[in-house]
Each structure stands twice: as C-alpha cells, then as structure tokens.
C-alpha cells in the first residue's frame, strides 16, 4: 500500500483541518445527495398528481386492486428498519460497535422482508396481467373490478387503456423505490464489513450516519407512496 497511512479513527485526512470539519463536510455531501433524491422522486410524484386529476377513476380502480394489508405491513417493516438504523448510529456514536452491528443486521433483515413482500405483490399483479410492459398487459378486468371498494361499485367503469397509466406509475415509482432498497442493502453490507474491521469510533462514524440518512429518505418516500398507491 503506497497510500499514506493514518488512523482514520483519530486523524482527519490531510486536506481537512480537523475530524469535525471532515465529518461535517462528508455529511453535507450526503445531504446534497438527499436533496437530489427528493427532486428525482418528486418528478414522479408530480406525474402521479397531474394524471390523478385527469384519470381519477382509474386511480381508484388501480389502487383498490392493490393489497393494502401488504402495503401496510411493508410500511411497518420500513419504519422499524428506520428505527434500528437510527439506533445503530446512536450506538456507533457512543462507541458500542457490537450493538450497532446487531442493529444493522436487523435493518438488513427488514429490507429483505420488504423485498420478499414486494415480490409476492408484483407476481400477483403479473399473474392478473397488470404489468404494463413486455406484452404482458392483459388485465383480468373481472378480477380487478371485484376488488373495487363497495361505495364505487357500479359507479366507476374502468377503461383498460387508461388503467394502464396507473400501473405504469405504480411499477415505475415502487420499482425505483425497490432499487433504492437494494442499493441500501449493499450499503449496509459495506457498513457491516467496516464495523467488523473495527473502523468506526465515537470520533469517526460518518459512513454509518450517511448510510442512515439514505435509509431514512427511502423510508420517507415509502411514507408517501403507501397512501397514494394503496389507500386513496
């Protein structure tokens, strides 16, 4: 190794004045990334809202055909994982790396539960021909209309061509969110490896906090996706 060796736990890299400055700079970078995340998903949300006013009935039919119990379960799972991640940051800052490691394992487990539930949801949609791509769009309208809430039975008739729009948005938004979960799992394994290497201390924990911020923004996006897709 030809790179300058220094103890990351007690020393800042040479281009920083202090560990504090290094930490603040790193965290600020993560926050800038968070702002871009808000705006990226924001574009999709704007699309959702604009078309909602044009094709309101299709959103009702599409939303009711989703399994809101599974959506609620996933909301709970993500909230718990956000808690364990926040607590992992607390433990790392207090120097309890072993506790932090356990909490991150729980976070990863929650992420996998989320993806498994999502797999069952997606395969049910594909099974009923509700995936709008690859010539797989062949919606089972009898099934879809049977899922519609009672107060709208008979009032709303769904046009499969317009219903497709809802599922394009559903798969695009939850799909992009799912990719974020996958990336989050990768980042967690990176943190796990670094904790096992004993790289963190109360003086140096920037990476744990940064991954935590990322994980919470993924949670926030789901907080909005759940009612918009499944409930309303």
């Amino acid at each position: 190794m030809s790179t300058a060796s220094y103890d990351k736990k007690t020393q800042a890299a040479h281009h920083f004045d202090s560990l504090d400055q290094q930490h603040e700079a790193g965290k600020q970078g993560v926050w800038l990334f968070m702002a871009t995340e808000i705006m990226m998903f924001g574009g999709l949300f704007v699309g959702y809202f604009l078309y909602r006013f044009k094709f309101h009935d299709m959103y009702i039919v599409g939303g009711d055909s989703l399994n809101w119990q599974l959506g609620a379960l996933n909301t709970l799972v993500l909230l718990i994982s956000s808690f364990t991640m926040a607590q992992a940051v607390t433990e790392t800052m207090s120097g309890n790396n072993k506790k932090a490691l356990k909490l991150i394992y729980v976070t990863v487990a929650c992420a996998f539960v989320f993806l498994i539930v999502k797999y069952f949801e997606y395969s049910a949609k594909v099974h009923h021909g509700m995936f709008p791509g690859f010539d797989m769009w062949n919606p089972d309208m009898t099934y879809i209309m049977s899922q519609l809430r009672e107060s709208s039975q008979g009032i709303i008739t769904a046009d499969p061509a317009n219903l497709r729009l809802f599922f394009v948005l559903y798969f695009a938004m939850t799909g992009l969110h799912g990719i974020h979960i996958l990336i989050g799992i990768g980042l967690m394994f990176w943190i796990i490896k670094r904790i096992k290497n004993d790289e963190f201390s109360p003086k140096y924990y920037t990476a744990v906090e940064g991954v935590g911020l990322y994980w919470h923004i993924v949670d926030i996006i789901w907080i909005f996706l759940f009612p918009l897709m499944y409930l309303i």
Binding site: E24, K27, Q28, W31, L32, M34, A35, T36, E37, I38, M39, G42, G43, F45, V46, F49, S82, F83, M85, A86, E209, G212, L213, H216, I217, D219
Partner: peptide, 28 residues
C-alpha cells in the same frame, strides 16, 4: 427532524434539505 437529526443540525444542512423540498414545491 429526529431520525435524520435535522433538529440537531446546523443551518447549512437544513437549507440544503429545504432547497430540495422548495424546488419540488415550485415544480408541483
């Protein structure tokens, strides 16, 4: 505020987060 520690942060990171939200509001 609490999980992402914005309640305990300095003004800079709050401004960055609010910029993201502000531009989103403008867009909407």
């Amino acid at each position: 505020g609490w999980f992402m520690h914005l309640k305990y942060e300095g003004i800079m990171n709050r401004v960055i987060a609010l910029c993201g939200l502000g531009f989103l509001l403008l867009f909407v």
